[in-house]
Design a protein around this nucleic acid. Structure first.
Lengths: 172, 172
DNA sequence: GTCTATAGATAGATAGAC
DNA sequence: GTCTATCTATCTATAGAC
């Protein structure tokens, strides 16, 4: 049943969000779905197959969330600040980056995420902004998210706010 | 012997540099030193103990490398570009971030790294630069490094160069 | 086609040999 | 004090039951 596949992928994504890449194991994911571990391998023969499916779902979810936040009418800087503060997002992002580093097949998926974010962000930048401004904002967001995750609150949050102010003052 | 401890920590760091956090296992590290896995646990009773020691050594090494690069007289933007391109650095950075997220005891160590980088970078910024400019440059560098690692060359490298130009034009 | 028992590999930690 | 054989836990994959 296709429904099962969906459930499994959703569980895999949840594991990444809550516990990060190192917790991405079949037993953990299986426990979340109520299935046996050996059952997972029927739908996804290898761990890599499952990871690829979860990565695609992750990209889709991230882009949808960003799209929704942007179309809410809030300021770009506010939207960015909120995304950076979502540690579950950051865990997924880092998992994708790590996986892409190890498995070239996943690089394409990570590229899709990057392209999608830059596209959506660029549409919100001042017309005068240079071509690389979208990449610039994206990279800044990624860096802030990683640092805030690792440093922890409240230090990280304050740092993020100050940096975003600097960046957006420059962009106008 | 203290020499053994040093050797083990060095091997652990090398594993992080080459293969990332998911490869940080006692068997792998032991193989690199020629010791038995069970021997490692004499010097570092638990995996967490070893990780902590390796994390401290990593911070020290990263800061030393940055210091050396900065005092070479090269432009700050060039130094930053070179650091971002060092994927082994990025793997270590991501390992520290991931570990800090899971183990609060490691957050302090990650903070030391952040503080050290920001200090060293800030000393090279224009006097007119605002207080958060060091954090800004640091976050941008982290983001660029992660993206370049995951996207791979040559796409990542070109993107990095374009973004650095944008950023440094603003800083003057 | 759907599911599970079980094998095979690898991880971390301990008790104990020297 | 230094080192290792070994136990236990956990992970992935396969062969085969229904």
């Amino acid at each position: 049943m296709e429904d099962r596949r969906q459930k499994i992928v959703e569980a895999g994504l949840q594991v990444l969000r809550e516990f990060g890449y190192s917790a991405f194991t079949q037993p953990r994911i299986a426990a979340l779905t109520g299935l046996r571990q050996s059952h997972l391998t029927y739908y996804f023969p290898t761990r890599a197959d499952l990871l690829e499916a979860v990565a695609r779902a992750a990209v889709e979810a991230q882009l949808a969330a960003l799209g929704a936040a942007l179309s809410s009418g809030a300021e770009l800087s506010a939207v960015l600040g909120a995304m950076v503060a979502r540690h579950d997002n950051t865990r997924v992002l880092m998992a994708l980056a790590q996986a892409a580093d190890q498995e070239p097949a996943l690089r394409t998926i990570f590229r899709d995420l990057t392209t999608g974010i830059v596209e959506r962000v660029s549409g919100r930048l001042p017309a005068a902004a240079t071509d690389a401004a979208g990449d610039f904002i994206h990279a800044l967001g990624v860096g802030l998210a990683v640092i805030e995750l690792a440093i922890g609150r409240p230090d990280g949050a304050a740092r993020t706010q100050a940096v975003l102010q600097v960046a957006f003052r420059h962009l106008g």
